[in-house]
Design a protein around this nucleic acid. Sequence first.
DNA 1: CGACCGATCGTCT
DNA 2: GACGATCGGTCGA
Length: 202
Amino acid sequence: MEKLSLSFYKRKNVLQVARELLGKVIVTKWDNVVTSARIVETEAYAGITDKASHAYGSRRTNRNEIMYAHGGVAYVYLCYGIHHLFNVVTNAEEIPHAILIRAGEPVEGVETMLKRTAKKKWDHTLTRGPGNLSKALGIYTHHSGLSLNDGEHLLIMDDGFRYKRSEIAASPRIGVDYAGKDALLPYRFYIKGNPYVSGKPK
DNA sequence: CGACCGATCGTCT
DNA sequence: GACGATCGGTCGA
């Protein structure tokens, strides 16, 4: 069980990093309360040429400024006024690549997750979808900019677990119809048949 | 099932 | 002033 190195995040191929994040474990520790989840669904956002990305056309605003940091920090933003979506920034400084973590399966702290999400029972909706996952892990927009490599509050760990290549599938990204042709790119990666994966099963 | 809708607010035009 | 990288509920077939 070791945290991912900075060099893991700083690599240039955001698609490869998005694939490799599958099976890794996000750990949060707020006020000494630990929750964690194994990643089963990710989406890559490939910077200034990707119409679906917040950084398309080199767009640079207060909200997305952190995307231009070096790989290995968190980019969290508010979606629909309700959901706090957690992204991992990748690549070098000034290259705004990011990976949206869309779903995980709970590993540790299910009781805490149930409390945070106000759910009564542990089922696959607990950490299914980016909004639910962030809520269960207690990740909010004010955590944007946190390093995933320093400190102990927000980490991604490698515990040696590996999904087989045959268990991983790719598809177009969800909810990015506005991106025209780029909406069709197979930049979403997920574990086939995993009940925590969002979207319609196929 | 699928289609639709309301919630809710920071961000950008 | 319009609109989301969403979610969960409702309604009708």
